[in-house]
Design a protein around this nucleic acid. Structure first.
Lengths: 318, 318
DNA sequence: CTGAAAGCGCTTACAG
DNA sequence: CTGAAAGCGCTTACAG
């Protein structure tokens, strides 16, 4: 069995209480005693048992992270940000990746049984609302990360409205006047519309998927710029455009969103709006730690950033 | 505070011990008593406190997962497989994503302090060998996942040799006789070489990166097939080939490895060797659970699978 | 400045 | 079939 506080106490002829105080840096213990204790703890590779500690302190120093889907790699960096910040605060990160709605309950139960001090949610709130209620009843702090609920819990999310402004604003500044915009993300679309209207330009055509877009482009040859609502969608948009015999960016410019790694490969070179993914994760964990500490926190919008690459250019002069 | 075993005992006028036994399905408790206890536990939404439980049982029902890097999305599905299997066994998954070598120690410390029952490692063993020693000294079971150590711990990994055979074998069956092979993964290369030699074909040219490959292709116009050692590398190989004015698959066929999602998009259509990522994760967690149970386990090679797409075709007949 | 004691919530022999 | 008791490893008032 591992070495315990009792064993240290026995070897040094002091009480277990003194060991505990010394190891927790309590100033009531004499320098000398404290030094001796720390030295022995180091030597014997003492690791405090979290069960005993947690039973007393009612803290597990464990956070739960519930993500909706593993694939697509969007959450990779977010999770890395969460994990880094958690580790720096000596928090363990319990992770549950549960695309399947039926498994959310089971995962939350595991979190609660392990006495997590708080939970970060990256999956869709609305579809699991009643499952989160159990967590809420237990007053476990929750933070939403790159998603948001109806307002009961703090969240951290990219300022998608501003991101939409950046994308459309970039196309407009290049000289594009008639755009097609993806309506897949309400806030990003609202940002698109805001700049377009502020410039008194024609209302953009709206689309959700490739087939629609093809119809729109054929009917409106004046459209020279497209804002896709993700880089993944930009790939599909690219196919549609090339399928119509048009070239990027010569005939049509397109912008993506997210700045996924593939946006930067030679085949794509998408101009896109980057989300500070690692920062989002760090901020979410930071907020959770403050919530655990009993502080009040404010929801946070993170700044998106325009990344200009080869998929956008001034429109051809006819 | 949450409801405890004591509270249940008080309300039902039985002893805490009886509650504990009943909830754990011990047959010594009378049916009737047991039913009453379970009903009340349900009603009050009783969740056993893992600290009290763990202190006694010396089990945390927590597993640690140490991954080398979050990006690249290769580990997404592996982690999903691990997580599913863990959850099904009522295990919580503590996750540490630590690209930075300096942080491995901190992460392992967090695992140990939380009393994980076992650890799955997906990062490179050799670079962290001395850091794992601390874990080994504490006799925490370890399983390597999609990587392996020098043989002290069980692992689960794709049969890369067979994968190499599949890739080269496919090219040969299409009629290619002179290949270039990536030497980045020893086992995959060995698989390539095995089929090539068995068919008495000329030794392939070996390359590690794009620049080398360009030189090789210019010097050896007889090369019509290339085995890249990952889909990510296949993207780079594609650039090199097209940079030389050659077309895929008309002039040169290429195979990737991994079957990443992007291999299937229209721009690439890579013929590739799929790894059963989710299955790898599931198997690793399963093995860890058995190790925790005190059973002996055998390392496991997972079957790769050839996925034929548009990047390969018979060589042009001159 | 240090020790003795109680207690966190659970499980597990041991009585009866 | 059920209860009383001890104890897992720690922390935290309380004495002295």
């Amino acid at each position: 069995m591992s070495v315990t506080i009792k064993e240290l106490a026995r070897q040094l002829n002091v009480s277990p209480a003194t060991i505990s105080l010394a190891l927790n840096g309590d100033s009531r213990v004499a320098e000398e005693t404290s030094a001796k204790i720390k030295a022995l703890a180091d030597e014997l590779d003492y690791v405090p048992n979290n069960f005993g500690r947690g039973l007393q302190s009612r803290k597990s120093r464990l956070a739960g992270y519930l993500a909706g889907s593993a694939t697509g790699s969007f959450f990779d960096l977010i999770m890395q940000g969460i994990g880094e910040t958690a580790a720096a605060a000596n928090y363990g990160l319990l992770t549950g990746i549960t695309y399947a709605s039926g498994k959310v309950d089971a995962q939350l139960k595991i979190f609660i049984e392990r006495n997590v001090d708080g939970i970060i949610i990256s999956s869709n709130y609305s579809t699991h609302a009643e499952q989160f209620e159990k967590v809420e009843r237990r007053k476990v702090p929750m933070v939403f990360c790159s998603t948001r609920d109806s307002g009961r819990h703090p969240f951290v999310i990219t300022d998608n409205f501003k991101g939409g402004q950046l994308a459309a604003g970039h196309l407009i500044s290049l000289g594009h006047r008639h755009l097609a915009c993806c309506s897949g993300n309400k806030d990003r679309l609202a940002g698109n519309l805001d700049v377009i209207r502020r410039h008194n330009l024609p209302e953009p055509a709206l689309f959700m998927e490739g087939k629609e877009l093809a119809v729109i482009l054929k009917a409106n040859p004046s459209i020279t710029g497209i804002t896709a609502c993700s880089d993944a969608q930009a790939i599909r948009v690219k196919h549609v455009i090339e399928g119509l015999g048009l070239r990027i960016p010569d005939d049509i410019s397109i912008t993506g969103f997210d700045d996924m790694w593939f946006s930067n490969i030679q085949e794509f070179q998408f101009t896109t709006v980057a989300q500070p993914k690692e920062g989002i994760g760090q901020a979410a964990m930071q907020m959770l730690l403050e919530l655990i500490d009993g502080k009040k926190v404010m929801s946070k919008f993170m700044e998106p950033e325009l990344v200009v690459r080869g998929s956008t250019a001034p429109p051809a002069t006819k």
